[in-house]
Design a binder for these strands. Structure first.
Lengths: 367, 367
DNA sequence: AATTGGTTCTGAACCGTTACGGTCACTTCA
DNA sequence: TGAAGTGACCGTAACGGTTCAGAACCAATT
């Protein structure tokens, strides 16, 4: 009588079966294998479900039994919200989302606060696999992911041995950009780069720190630069390289200022991302320096904003990167691991790079 | 002996307990309640776990038992990937992500293909709650979400009765914008709006379709316009309103063209989103029309690109909207449901709205 | 009449964990 | 010396499903 007055525990598959006088199997089949029971009974099951307010099989219980979560996890270096501020990250996300929806899979953004070492979120994530996007190679979250017994694809990471990987050849791409500048005549340059490790160092970077950088992407790009310029006789140790923890235009601006203060005579400012480059350009403009007449500026990524600004940069297929990562993860079939996808990049000759002052005339009268 | 030669089923909490000769409870406590067992035993447990390759408690099993998934689901109208293309949606996502990371909660993007009526993804999502962002009020995915026995917050939706809600007063905001145009002297206007229902109708919209629109946001904005203009004697039924299914600049351009073809004498083109407005402006420019000298254009949302273009529009706090939705969902404590948050908007007087041709002179010599 | 095949439904095992309410040995205190 | 308290650990019962090997039944075939 009064039993339904109280909290009334939510209906379950079992209670539904009891109500109907059938087995749990049958109710389960009503939802998952309609061909396994008579249409008539199925109708009764569904109707009774509606009457009892049974919302259908519990997804978590189902996942436990089937060992499928129907979702992949995404681990980012940054705060979750950062991903929606960086155009390159957004592009990656779009590509990954594309792959996910193709497969009908959910995409779980795992809240991994880089400040705290709290790895619990990685442990709590009910997913069938992970995509790890550009985290430092000593990140505890990455370690936690690799301990999980699920397939993983890393993106913009060094070769981890037996993990699938997606990325570009950052070193070669940056080397090509450097060659371009070198052929324009630049020898005295400054560099602005993103964070190289988990600790904040908004300052110049020693060559040691460059080589020991925990962010594979940044390390490779700097290595590409160093190699190219060293090969034309530039002593890389004397090149000012300013690091910034936060990836913002403001960082690019302040880093540019710092580099110029150290060496006002550089003819080119090489930035390891477009965002930093755009910030640097703003600072240069503020100082009354014309780009590229007075100084050359380059970026990396090929985001839309850079294109609009005519930035000379390296375009990388961020969307394709996300999609490739998703596909790799979801095509888990007959995998000959580890697999690696290296996407190609393209040097974009914008309007922010030109021969250094004075060189133009030389070329006028050249051979 | 040879037992470990074979597939070796992955270690579980139980097998670990057996190996150690302790109860499962104790192993569980080693992970979840370190104070419940001696440090010495805990050390042994963890060490044995490492030795056996036990990755820690299975998240899905844990979720089943604790009735907590540690994630919230996000349901969007569009393909998942679309969310990363629309600046307003990105802002919303950023805000939502912010709220999630504050709470240490994951964010699951649910793949709800609007084309197909496949609601399975909603059923499969292991989440503690849902945020529903701007879907048509008759969307089966929305219905599926509401059937799930988890808290839900809808965003940019009509009042659903007993569901938490976040939004703005679209009608009032658009009414204010209309008043602004009216005060400038505009009486003959055209409208470009986003999709009004789940079916594609890239054409003009009848007043009936406007009123029956399934997208609350669009319906409200059109209602605000209709009300404002009707109050100054404009027969709304004669106003050309062009609808576009896809929310792109290209849509805005083609819709603008369609409206102008219908009535070349309109003095203002009102768009229900900035994206559409930017597309419309591109089309107007292509036709050699100057904005605002020859024609006034307005948008809605207040995205960054609109600001750069000097668009006259209504700015709404998209990030705050996302954050509010997340907070509402996650502060499930002592809730006096249903709760509703209505955020405020701001009329942005850009440089794309001016008095209609000829009116300027009148004002020069005005009273 | 026995065999075969097909459909419909069932029983029991299993997925891996945590919540709950203990037990038990060992202090501590009066 | 007995009562009460404390720390460490355990047993059982869920949590809500899916799955697989049959059972029961009936019609058709041999």
């Amino acid at each position: 009588m009064a039993r339904s007055m109280h909290v009334r525990r939510p209906a379950t598959l079992a209670s539904l079966a009891a109500e109907l006088g059938v087995s749990r199997t049958t109710v389960s089949n009503a939802y998952n294998r309609p061909d396994q029971l008579s249409p008539e009974l199925r109708r009764r099951v569904l109707e009774t479900a509606r009457r009892l307010g049974y919302p259908g099989p519990d997804p978590v219980a189902r996942s436990l039994r089937t060992r499928k979560a129907g979702a992949v996890g995404l681990l980012l270096t940054e705060n979750l919200s950062y991903a929606f501020r960086d155009p390159a990250a957004i592009g990656f996300l779009e590509g990954l989302a594309l792959a996910c929806e193709d497969a009908g899979t959910g995409l779980l953004l795992v809240p991994a606060n880089p400040e705290r070492e709290d790895v619990a979120a990685v442990h709590r994530a009910g997913v069938d696999g992970f995509v790890v996007y550009s985290v430092p190679d000593d990140d505890p979250h990455l370690a936690a992911v690799l301990e999980r017994p699920v397939p993983t694809v890393v993106c913009d990471q060094p070769d981890l041995g037996n993990v699938d990987r997606v990325g570009i050849d950052d070193q070669a791409a940056m080397h090509a950009l450097a060659q371009h500048l070198i052929s324009l005549g630049h020898r005295r340059v400054g560099v602005v780069c993103m964070r190289l490790a988990r600790d904040r160092n908004d300052d110049f970077v020693t060559p040691e720190r460059q080589q020991a950088a925990h962010f594979h992407v940044q390390r490779s790009r700097l290595a590409g630069l160093a190699q190219a310029f060293a090969s034309v006789g530039v002593d890389w140790a004397t090149v000012p390289v300013a690091e910034r923890f936060d990836h913002t235009m403001a960082s690019g601006a302040s880093a540019a200022a710092q580099v110029l203060e150290r060496d006002p005579h550089i003819t080119a400012l090489i930035c390891t991302s477009d965002i930093l480059a755009l910030g640097a350009m703003a600072e240069l403009q503020r100082r009354g320096l014309r780009v590229p007449a007075d100084i050359t500026v380059t970026g990396f990524d090929g985001i839309r904003e850079a294109e609009q600004a005519g930035l000379t940069t390296v375009r990388q297929p961020v969307l394709e990167k996300g999609r490739a990562a998703g596909k790799l993860l979801l095509d888990s079939a007959e995998r000959t691991r580890p697999r690696a996808v290296t996407l190609s990049t393209e040097l974009v000759e914008g309007t922010t790079a030109a021969p250094p002052r004075g060189t133009a005339e030389e070329r006028w009268f050249g051979p």
